[in-house]
Amino acid sequence: MEGMAIRLTGLRKTYGRTEAVAGVDLEIADGEFFSMLGPSGSGKTTVLRMIAGFETPSAGTVELAGRDVTRLAPFERDVHTVFQDYALFPHMTVEQNVAYGLKVRGVPRAERLVRSRAALAQVGLDGLGKRRPAELSGGQRQRVALARALVGRPRVLLLDEPLGALDLKLRERMQVELKEIQREVGITFVFVTHDQEEALTMSDRIAVFHQGRIEQVAAPAEIYERPATPFVAGFVGTSNLLSGDTAQRVVGASGTYSIRPEKIRILSDHKAAGDPGHATAAGTVAEVVYLGDSTRFLVDLDGGGRLTALQQNLETSSADLAAFRGARIGLQWHPSHAVRVPDAPETP
């Protein structure tokens, strides 16, 4: 187990007749930024809580650094959890909040002061130790919660949707900063989120959860470019899923295929042959969705089926794009971008 921070084997959790986690096997390496991604109710947070010790598995084991901790209390595990609501003490200063866990463990006052200030510096909050949480912004309070977790020097840091309460711009900035902090401290981060962009932006690897099971574990690029199941293809980003007669007609093969909208190029002439070696299709623009930096085209294909294409707005505005609605256009893509998606495994 050298180099392995977490190992989950046959992990299950039931609440009466409801099976929240239905058999999870997973290994997470030391120093890895690992994300658990999935919709609400997929089991990801329950798995995180079993790693932390807040929930007891109905079956299976949790190992941390090769040690079976399945039945140990949270304080007996070398992990720390950061929650979405921060849970800071309003009557304490920032410095006191960060040092509180050390005080409970009996760390001498002088050492607590040094370590709490170092942790605050690590998250970019130098000089703010004397303030109260109410005097900080949402992003600063999130960093205080992170510093409080890091000051104890845990082997594993668990983050349960910690950016969910932040506005978009702050969330995007914190995504970058979290990854930088993780690289600097070098400990294992396990990040739970339902936001695909967050997971793709920060993670070394991602586990995609669905109905209490893991559908795929891989690096972000592999998850996005080569989804292992139809659910992964549809949940992570936007994808055109083609099957049955539509797949036979558009791709020229049976089975289920995924084509990402940004891989499809729009041809203004629906009769154009397209570039050599590329697949083509013609259709009518059913809807145009202006996204600012890009535009999404929903195209009803001749013969049935619909494809979504994405085009960067390099020289066009929303006014120019309105004229496309109802227009006849052509589409083209490289055959390698029609990725075969294996059928989802049957649920026991």
Rank of each mutant, 00 (worst) to 15 (best):
R183S: 12
V250T: 06
P39F: 04
A221V: 07
R173K: 15
W333S: 03
Q311C: 05
K103G: 07
L267T: 08
R17V: 12
D167Y: 02
D275H: 06
E27A: 14
N97I: 00
T284Y: 00
R71P: 01
L200V: 04
L310T: 11
T347M: 14
V79G: 03
A286N: 12
I206R: 11
E315M: 13
A281Q: 05
G127A: 05
S116H: 02
H91I: 10
E32S: 01
Y257L: 12
F83E: 00
G60F: 05
T256D: 05
V250P: 08
D245G: 05
T284N: 01
P154N: 10
R171W: 05
R340V: 14
G330P: 08
R148A: 06
P348L: 10
P154I: 06
R226N: 14
V185T: 05
A338T: 01
D204Y: 10
G252E: 02
R340I: 11
A73H: 14
E262A: 08
L301F: 08
A247V: 12
R328Y: 01
P39Q: 01
F235A: 04
S317K: 07
D78Q: 06
A322G: 02
A253E: 02
S336M: 11
S42C: 15
L37F: 05
A134S: 15
K169Y: 07
G255F: 02
E161W: 04
S35D: 13
V47C: 14
T201D: 11
T193R: 06
D85M: 06
D275F: 00
G164W: 00
D320T: 08
G164T: 10
A52F: 03
A52I: 05
G326F: 06
G106D: 05
R12C: 10
L321P: 04
Y15M: 09
L128T: 11
G139F: 00
F83D: 05
A121C: 03
Y86N: 07
I214M: 10
F83Y: 12
L298E: 14
V62P: 13
R112T: 05
P345T: 12
T256V: 11
A322R: 14
E215D: 13
D126K: 10
E198L: 07
V341T: 02
M92G: 04
H278Q: 13
G304V: 09
S40I: 05
I214D: 10
G303T: 03
R67T: 15
A221P: 00
L48T: 08
A29M: 09
M202Y: 06
A59Y: 06
D25G: 13
A118I: 08
R325S: 12
Q122F: 01
Q312K: 12
L136R: 12
T295K: 03
G152H: 02
